[in-house]
Amino acid sequence: MITIIDYGLGNIGSVVNTMTALGVPCVVSSDPFVVGSAAAILLPGVGAAGVGMQNLKTRGLDSVIRNQVLRGIPFIGFCLGMQLLFEYSEEADTVCLGILKGSVRKFRAEKKVPQIGWNTVTVSDSNPYARRLFDGIPAAEFYFVNSYYPVVENPDMVAATTRYGETFASAVAYKNLFATQFHPEKSGAAGTILLTNFIKENL
């Protein structure tokens, strides 16, 4: 069972479809009590950082998510659901959850922003959790839609990197936490393998 956090944004329908297709029972909730007692949580992410944080706070979900992650329950986040884990985002000058040290910056080097499309994800050999999650897909293409990317302070947390003008951390994996800048739920067969590995390990 995984609790998918509804904070008024995100491609929730799409995430529910994917998890259901993989045989995982899902609960969609914006209730801090439900999220606070969840055995595992998924923070989806299509949206803007400012509105996202504001919606989490209004619903009383920000501290609940922080406590749950620190308590050690399995966590998975996609796209904005990864970015919000950091301390700060340049998008609308937003203070984020501050679970991970680092910040979120706008792409500067590439002409076309947002990055929209399939890009190569290179897995970090030195991260054992990442190696298990990406088992069977060492270097594959995943689907991205983002104008911003995370700058991770602790290199041990980096699970994978991707190049779009600059090279950035396209996934983090650390203890109970896994989050991707790309959308595994939209990444065809590669995404299915990744999520299946996550489910096998955690649920």
Partner: peptide, 9 residues
């Protein structure tokens, strides 16, 4: 729409 969901969608 972009403010609510991000311009990427």
């Amino acid at each position: 729409c972009a403010n609510a969901f991000g311009n990427q969608c």
